[in-house]
Amino acid sequence: MILGKVIGNVVSTMKLSIYEGYKILIVQPINNREEPQGKTFLALDTVQAGVGDIVLIIDEGNSSRLIMNNKTAPVRTMIVGIVDSIN
């Protein structure tokens, strides 16, 4: 899992049905000192994260398919937690 910071969101109505019901957030990956590290990407939100939140991200297909309980879901990146503090 990786750490990231939510910097925005994406609104999309015309999309594969599997994506319905999930917010799509724009995430900037960060290191443990909360400094940006790497390219931004989009992730499906499962914990109602908002802009500015530090979040925990799953970046692996099988784990995402487990979360979505669908063996053929074309999903790889999902937000699975909101981080309170990094020590």
Partner: peptide
Amino acid sequence: LTIMGIVDQVNIGE
């Protein structure tokens, strides 16, 4: 590489 959706709006910040 497969397109999964058409984006209506991209919001940064706020």
